[in-house]
Design a protein around this nucleic acid. Structure first.
Lengths: 332, 332
DNA sequence: CGCCAAAATGTAATGGATTACATTATACAG
DNA sequence: CTGTATAATGTAATCCATTACATTTTGGCG
C-alpha cells in the first residue's frame, strides 16, 4: 500500500506538496500538480483515513442508532440520511440496538472513541432524559421521537396536529363512536396522538370512552393490531371508526373487521398512520397520515451537519405531514 | 478529551503500561492495573480509534454495499450482518448505491482508503467480473448474488434447486400450463430460477411456451407484477399456475387475477419467492420459497471475518431454503 | 542587475495509541 | 549475600497525513 511518502518520492516533491495537491490548496504550480497526480495514479495511492482522521480530528462518519433496520419506516428515513450524507462526503455507521438502552449508550460511546463525528437517534423514549447529557457533549440529532423535556436538536412531524387532523376528519364525517388503537411503547408520538384523540373528542363534546382505547404492542405488529381491533369490535356498542397508530395496525384492524363480517368502510372506518406499509397493495386502500420519511432523514442529516460544523445548539425542525384519504374511511 | 498520556500521568505510570492494561496484556501488576483503571475512570478516557486504527492497521469496520436498504429482503440480511458483526466487535458502514455500478466501486474504494477492513456486497450482476479483481486484493463477500464466473467468497441459497422444488410441486399437482414471471435484472438468481423453470418443464415433457414467460421490472415491484400477470392471464389459453420470482410480484399477480375474476387458488395457483413481504397478511396466504435472510447475513459476516483474519480464499456457503405451501396454490 | 513581495516548495512537529527493545525491580537458588 | 531468571515497567520508534513555519524560487520594477 502506497503512502504519501512514496508518492512524494515518485513525483520528486515533498510530502507537504503532495498533501497540498490532495486537498486542492492553491499554492501548487500547475506542472507540479500534474506530476503529483501522475505519481498518485501510477501508485494508485489513496490516503489512509485513519491517519487523516487522527490528524484532522474528525472522521466524516456519522452514527445511526436504530432499534431495528427491518422496520420500513426507519429504513426509509435511513435512505434519506444515507443519500444526504453521501452527498456531503459522509459515511453512515449503523448501530442496531433492538430497543435495548444499554446498546444505545454503547453506540453513543463511539462518539467518545471518535469512531464517528455525530449521531442520529431513532426511537428515544419520552422519558430518556439522559440523552441530553450526551447531546451537550456531542453532536446528536433525534429523529421522530424525543424526550419530553430538554432541548436536543431534532426533526419530526407535528404528531398532535396530525392526529387532530384525523380526528377532525372522522368527527366531521359524522362518527361519534370512535376508537383508537394506541401502543404500549413510550414514544412521545404515541402520547401526542393519544392526547389529540382525547382532546379532539372533548372539544366536540364527545365523551372519552376508556373501552375504546386499546393498546397494541410496542412495535405495531400486524397481529397485535388485529387482536386489539377484535377486542374493540366485539364490544356490544362497537365503534364506527378506529384511528390506528400505524398502518400495519390498520391492516390488522381491517383484517379483524373482515373476519367479523364487518365491511370497511361502510360498516367501519379505519385510519392508519405513516403511509409506509403497503397501504395501497390491497383494497380497501388505507386512509392515513403520510410522514415524509425520506425527507425526515435528509433533514436529520442536515441538522446534524450544522451541529458538527457551526455547532448550532438546539435546532428543532417540524416537517409537514399529509393526510391522505383513500378507501378505508367514509361517512357514517 | 483525555489521551493515554493524561491517563499515564494521572496513574503515575508510562503510556506503555496504560496501553498494556487497555489490551489486557498480562505483564502488569494487579495493583498498577487498578491504579490505571482508576485514572481511566477519573478522566473518563476512551482510546482514540483513529490512532489505534492507524497503528494497528485495521478499523474493525465492515462495509455493506447495497442498492437499497428500503428493500425488506436486504434489510433482514442486514440485520443478521449487523448483529453478528456487533457480537464480534465490528461496526457496519452502510453504503447505498441505488444500483449504480460507479457508486459500488466508489464504495469499495473505502477499503483502499482503510475506512473498512472488508466488504459485503449485495446484488452483483452475473456479468460483473470486475469484482474478482477487488476480491483478490481485499476481503470481500458476496451475498445472494454473484458473477457467473470467478471464485469470490459468497453465501446464498441454491436458487436452481429452490425453483426446481417449486416446479416439481406445481407439476406434481397436475398443472401443465405453467407461466413464470421473471425479471429484467441481471442477477444470477434470476437466471437460475428461469433455467430451472424451463428445464423442469422439459424434464416432464412439457413444452416451454415463450408467451408464458414474462419479465417484471428489475426490482420486483408490485405494479410490474400485476401488469405481467395481467398480460399472462389475458392470453386465450391462459395458464393455471404462475411461478413468480418474488412475493411482491406474487401479490401483484393475485391482485391481477382478482381483478380479472379469477379465483386463487381454485382458478390459478400463484407461488412466490423469498417469504419476506407480507406473505401472510392477506388471504390467500402465499405459497413461497423462504430464504433464511437473517442467517444469510450472519453467514456472510462469518465468511468475511475469516477472510479478514485467516485470509481464507474462496469459501462458498449455500444455505438451505424452505418451501412453504400455504393457500395460494393447489391442484388443478 | 539587485531588491522585494509573492508564489512555490520543503522541513519537521503533530495527532494518539501500539510495541519492539531497553531497563529496572523482584524472587529465588545457591 | 550474590547472581540470574523473570516479572514489571519505561523509552522511543512507528503508523501516515496534515500543517505551521522555514526556505527557496519567481517575477516585476526601479
Amino acid at each position: 500500500m502506497a503512502t504519501i511518502e512514496d508518492v512524494a518520492k515518485e513525483a520528486k516533491v515533498s510530502v507537504a506538496t503532495v498533501s497540498r495537491v490532495l486537498n486542492n490548496k492553491k499554492a501548487v504550480k500547475e506542472e507540479t500538480c500534474k506530476r503529483v497526480y501522475r505519481a498518485i495514479d501510477k501508485l494508485s495511492f489513496e490516503p489512509n483515513m485513519s491517519a487523516r482522521n487522527l490528524r484532522r480530528n474528525e472522521t466524516r462518519v456519522i452514527l445511526i442508532v436504530t432499534p431495528n433496520i427491518t422496520n420500513p419506516y426507519y429504513a426509509h428515513i435511513l435512505a434519506g440520511i444515507g443519500d444526504c450524507a453521501q452527498e456531503a462526503g459522509y459515511s453512515a455507521l449503523i448501530h442496531n440496538t433492538s430497543g435495548n438502552e444499554k446498546r444505545v449508550k454503547a453506540g453513543l460511546d463511539m462518539l467518545k472513541k471518535k469512531r464517528a463525528d455525530g449521531a442520529i437517534l431513532f426511537a428515544s423514549n419520552m422519558d430518556s432524559m439522559w440523552i441530553k447529557e450526551y447531546a451537550d457533549e456531542y453532536p446528536i440529532v433525534l429523529c421522530s421521537e424525543y424526550p419530553a423535556k430538554g432541548h436536543v436538536p431534532r426533526v419530526s412531524i407535528d404528531n398532535y396536529k396530525a392526529a387532530q387532523d384525523v380526528m377532525e376528519y372522522i368527527i366531521g364525517m359524522g362518527h361519534i363512536r370512535i376508537a383508537t388503537i394506541s401502543s404500549s411503547n413510550k414514544y412521545i408520538s404515541t402520547a401526542l396522538r393519544l392526547r389529540a384523540y382525547k382532546e379532539s373528542l372533548l372539544w366536540h363534546n364527545i365523551e372519552v370512552h376508556e373501552d375504546y382505547i386499546v393498546y397494541a404492542d410496542a412495535d405495531y405488529s400486524f397481529m397485535s393490531g388485529k387482536e386489539a381491533a377484535t377486542k374493540i369490535l366485539k364490544q356490544k356498542n362497537r365503534p364506527t371508526a378506529i384511528f390506528c397508530i400505524s398502518d400495519t395496525i390498520a391492516l390488522g384492524a381491517i383484517t379483524a373487521a373482515k373476519e367479523l363480517g364487518i365491511d370497511v368502510p361502510s360498516g367501519l372506518s379505519v385510519i392508519g398512520f405513516d403511509d409506509v406499509d403497503d397501504t395501497t397493495m390491497f383494497h380497501p386502500y388505507i386512509t392515513t397520515i403520510a410522514q415524509p420519511c425520506y425527507d425526515l432523514g435528509r433533514q436529520a442529516f442536515r441538522i446534524l451537519y450544522n451541529c458538527m460544523n457551526d455547532g448550532k445548539a438546539d435546532e428543532v425542525t417540524v416537517l409537514p405531514h399529509k393526510f391522505i384519504i383513500r378507501e378505508s374511511s367514509g361517512s357514517i
